[in-house]
Every structure is written in C-alpha cells, then in structure tokens.
Simulated assay, not measured.
Amino acid sequence: MLRRAARAVLQRHGLEGKAALSVALVDEETVRRLNRTYRGIDAPTDVLSFPIPVELSPGVRYLGDVVIAFPYAARQALREGHPLEGELVLLTVHGVLHLLGYDHDTPRARRRMWGIQREILHQLGFPEVAPPDG
C-alpha cells in the first residue's frame, strides 16, 4: 500500500523507474529524536522527509527517506476518523512530495501541495483523508 502511494507520486511527476526512495515506519521516540536533531524541535511528529539527492546509476536518482511515526499516525487517524491505511497513505504521499521539493510554508505553496495530495489520494481510493483546500 505504501509502495503504491509512493509510486503514484513518482508517476505523477514522470519519475517512475527514474527514482528510488525509502519509507520507514518507526516508533515515536525515533521520530522525536530525528525531529530534534534535524529540525531543532524536541517533539514527535507524524512524518519527516530527508532529501538525499544522489545519482544511483545513469538516469536513476535516489530521492531520500520518508520516516513515519506509526503510533502517532494511528492516533491521528483515530482522532480524524480516518482509516489507518488511509492515514499512512496520506503521510507517504506527503513525505514523497517533500522529497520532490514541495512545501506548505506559504498559502500558495500549501494550496499547490494539498491539491496534488488530494488528486493522488482520490486516485488511490482514499479521498476521505485528503486535506481540505488550504
């Protein structure tokens, strides 16, 4: 399911077969430690992305790593009334978009990123977890 979500993002950007990445499901303490080390925020979060653009072979790039805090995601799904699978797909799509350079730090960037997330989540059959217009 997470592979399918990552692949959908790559397909949308014409990168299927041209890019690789990893998605890791970890505990909250691991994400908290990563968040503190790399972002200076000593708190857990749902997903972190670590771009590591490197060429693996001619025409194939390694984009980086997406790290999802599974317990955090499970609580978030419950709180939002989403199926856990949908929440994990959303976080995967979100994380891969960050690897591709998308962000949500301005209203315009947020609308763009959220729109792509919605499109991909609908395509994958999880429209109920798509974030509202931003």
Rank of each mutant, 00 (worst) to 15 (best):
R75Y: 12
L78A: 07
A8G: 11
L63P: 07
N35F: 11
T37P: 00
P58S: 13
H94M: 02
R112W: 09
D65R: 07
P107C: 13
I41T: 06
N35C: 03
T30R: 14
I120S: 10
T30Q: 12
P131Q: 13
E28N: 05
L100A: 13
E29C: 05
G95W: 02
R110K: 15
Q117V: 15
D27S: 07
R79C: 05
P71M: 03
P44T: 03
A109Q: 12
L63E: 01
L10W: 15
A43V: 01
P51V: 13
T37G: 03
A20W: 14
H98M: 06
L2V: 06
R36T: 01
E80I: 08
R79H: 12
P53H: 15
E55F: 06
D65G: 06
V129E: 01
G59W: 08
K18S: 11
M113A: 12
P71S: 03
V31P: 04
Q123V: 09
L34N: 00
V89N: 01
H98Q: 05
V31D: 00
Y62A: 01
A74S: 07
E85N: 00
P71L: 02
M113D: 08
E28S: 14
A8L: 07
F126N: 02
D42G: 00
F126H: 13
D103T: 12
H94V: 00
L84W: 09
R61N: 08
L91C: 06
T37Y: 10
L100P: 12
F70W: 14
L99R: 01
R3C: 11
R33W: 08
G64H: 03
L48A: 06
A74I: 04
I52G: 05
D46H: 07
